[in-house]
Design a protein around this nucleic acid. Structure first.
Lengths: 231, 231
DNA sequence: AACGAAGTGATCGTATACAAAAATTCCCTT
DNA sequence: AAGGGAATTTTTGTATACGATCACTTCGTT
């Protein structure tokens, strides 16, 4: 069955819209704060607003899109606090995931991990930042797939997407290589069956990414106007 | 804040429908597998199918409702596998939550926890099972609120709801008291600042609930027909 | 009488229409 | 010329209409 409608993904039209938007956001072609007008998207995908709204509401539930009443949908801009919470949750969940992944290791998985690493290295070598960003996230999802835990997998998928937005908003230096090197080390630990090392490397990897960000509060919320005017 | 619409929830009409359905499911007035017809719900809440669909899709994303294409929405029936995954995720997340809750302990929180326990004990004493079920879940959410981690809170809210369905489907004995006693022990550990004990008690509490269930596979999925006919 | 097929009714998927709110433009006033 | 306000335009919120799919009933055939 080429047109896979099995597990979760359906080839229905709202999923097509959702996936199209998600990919654009994950590849940083749509930046945080971008307005996502219903009519505009509807014209692009040749669909009515009904379907577009369904797709946007899904993405909103995943935290990738923010919907403001009577104002419309925008690509989400995670606050520093949300960013920290996302990283904390990723450490927790990916720690558990990697332990399960180690137990599931096999030759088949080793090959899939190697292929993934090769694709990542290739994208970085070619300087294709957009592909590199996406593939970096996909590595984490591949490990989650190994863990054979659908709930963890779907949770991580949301967290990875939010991480992508977070990095774009708060990174200190211009480019950020999520590090194929790190991924390779983690892979080695997994395939060699060293669970505690794999877990430690994974968490360090995540904490390092977070450390490269500037997550100081900016007090963008209310009352700032008064402060500014009186300052 | 009795009718809590603060953080994310808006007092809009789709939220009213969603919350109404959710409450009915959490109190086991709507049982797993129940058909949730769009027109039927629309008449009850005096709303058009547009709004009902939005509410149902939200609940579907939370795993409380299952939507089958061209067949409609039903109260979810978590599989044994989904049930196990839910409990594993709860152990992981509530372990982290309770550690954070211990750090946040204060006189104010002690009072809120006490009130919650009193309400639970009262419901059990009155034999009001429906309220008891709901309040038992609310205790866990109160601890999550202490943890001051919006992401963990929203994740746990979904997990608690699915747990409610799971218990209904798979419990061995007729009634299941989620145990005010357990909750009281956990509360004591939290307010006394004993993080490791609180965490251990919380995880034991969850594992004990899971142990009271019969989560053996029933092979309800595909290919069973062939097996039955050939058997 | 049992099985199967066509027809009928109910329910869902999607588009569109209309109302309400927000954003923008334009004009008037100072 | 700058600021404010009303009219206009755009966009979202919600209801409804219509076609498609599924479930059920009924009728005919073996």
């Amino acid at each position: 069955m080429a047109t896979d409608t099995s597990s979760t993904g359906a080839p229905d039209r709202v999923s097509r819209i959702r996936n199209g938007l998600l990919l654009a956001i994950l590849e940083h072609r749509l930046l945080p704060g971008t307005k996502l007008g219903e009519d505009e998207i509807g014209q692009i995908y040749d669909a009515s607003r009904t379907l577009v709204r369904a797709a946007l509401q899904q993405l909103a539930h995943e935290g990738i899109v923010e919907i403001e009443k009577n104002r419309g949908a925008f690509v989400a801009s995670p606050s520093p606090r949300e960013a920290r919470e996302t990283f904390e949750a990723r450490c927790l969940i990916e720690g558990a995931i990697v332990e399960r992944a180690v137990k599931a290791r096999s030759e088949t998985w080793r090959v899939r991990l190697d292929d993934q690493l090769a694709a990542e290295a290739d994208a970085e070598a070619r300087g294709d930042h957009r592909a590199a960003i996406r593939l970096s996230g996909e590595y984490h999802l591949l490990v989650a797939e190994m863990a054979d835990h659908e709930l963890y997998y779907s949770l991580l998928r949301e967290l990875v997407a939010r991480t992508s937005l977070t990095i774009l908003l708060y990174r200190r230096h211009r480019v950020h290589f999520c590090g194929v090197d790190h991924h390779r080390l983690i892979t080695d630990a997994i395939v060699s069956g060293d669970a505690v090392r794999a877990k430690a490397l994974m968490i360090d990897h995540l904490k390092e990414i977070e450390a490269e960000l500037d997550l100081t509060e900016t007090e963008e919320s209310s009352a700032s106007l008064a402060d500014i005017l009186q300052g």
